Simulated assay, not measured.
Amino acid sequence: MIMAPPKIEAFASREALFDATASVLVAALNDAVAKRGHAGFAATGGTTPAPVYDRLATLTLPWDKVTVTLTDERFVPPSDASSNEGLVRRHLLVGAAAKAAFAPLYFDGADPEEAALKAQDGVAAALPFGVVLLGVGGDGHFASLFPGNPALEAGLDPKTARSVIAVPPGSPAPDLPRISLTFQALIQASLIVLLVTGQAKKALLEAPVDPGLPIAAILNQDRAPVRILWAE
């Protein structure tokens, strides 16, 4: 069955967007726990999702049955201000939510390729995901799968056996080495939620989406349903 392209669900304010996103995430995770006894959550980084994680951490969920991982990570330690793991630990894995298991993508002392290989076991424990939260870049990237990057083809390969890959720095992005889940891993999900703000990204995602953009792979696949939640 081919799914219709997802419609953009617009909210009147960012606060309303963050409230709605947290509600969608907790419902998907509770549903996964009810069906499978556990739930995996692939969390995105950046500044936009922090208020969502603040809300999600306060909601009722059997956190001890949840494994949290990341859609991608900058190759920096969790103590670095730009670390996605650090963000998730500060905003989500607090209070009752600290009972969740966490599967990191960064490992101290490993190079990016070693870290990507080492991360696969933890990610496998979270699969299939109850829900994946993704952001979208102005260039159409998702996770750390960037247009023009040497790792893009491997990251988008629907037949790859890899769930995690190393992404080298590139021009114009990314500026640092990164670790990213692959497209193939991310679509092993009951739901993919795109959290989007601003008119430019809304215009990028309004159908028809440029098939040359990495995000088109997410929007055009028929494995996992996609919801686009947006506010200005």
Rank of each mutant, 00 (worst) to 15 (best):
A97F: 05
A32Y: 00
Y53C: 08
P78Q: 02
A203M: 15
M1E: 10
A96F: 02
T58S: 11
A231G: 09
M1D: 07
P6A: 09
G46Q: 01
P174M: 03
V226G: 01
L61N: 15
L186D: 02
I228F: 07
A217S: 13
P208G: 13
V131I: 05
G140H: 01
D80Q: 01
N84E: 06
E232I: 04
T58P: 04
P174R: 07
T160A: 08
I218D: 01
A34W: 06
P150T: 00
A10Y: 05
A224I: 11
V123W: 07
N30Y: 00
K99N: 14
P177H: 06
L87V: 07
G86V: 02
Q184D: 11
D31T: 06
V209I: 14
P112I: 01
L219M: 07
Y106K: 10
A207I: 06
T71H: 02
A98K: 11
G148K: 04
G130V: 07
A203K: 15
G148C: 10
L204V: 13
L152A: 02
A154S: 14
A185W: 04
E206W: 10
L17S: 09
V76D: 05
V33E: 04
D210N: 15
D111L: 05
V167Q: 14
D72G: 03
L145R: 03
G122E: 08
E73L: 09
Q221K: 03
R74N: 13
G122P: 12
G46S: 01
Y53V: 08
K159T: 14
Y106A: 09
L156G: 02
S171V: 14
E153Q: 14
Q221L: 06
A42M: 01
G95N: 01
I192V: 13
V76L: 08
V164Y: 00
L152P: 09
L145V: 08
G138C: 06
P112G: 02
R36M: 05
V76F: 05
D54S: 05
A203C: 12
V123H: 09
A207M: 06
V132F: 04
A189Q: 10
Q120D: 11
P211C: 12
V94K: 13
A12E: 15
E9D: 12
D121P: 00
Q120L: 09
D222F: 06
P62K: 15
P49W: 04
D80C: 02
G95V: 01
L29Q: 01
T182G: 00
P211W: 13
L181P: 07
A124E: 14
A110C: 15
L105A: 09
K35E: 09
R223H: 05
L59A: 11
I179K: 04
A119N: 04
P6R: 12
G130R: 02
I165D: 03
S144P: 03
T21K: 03
L70K: 10
E153M: 12
E206G: 04
A217E: 06
N149F: 03
A143G: 11
V26H: 08
L117N: 14
A96K: 14
D64R: 15
V76A: 05
D108M: 03
R178C: 12
P225C: 00
G37T: 10
T60P: 09
A115Q: 04
K201Q: 14
L70I: 13
T69A: 10
A166S: 15
W230Q: 13
G130K: 01
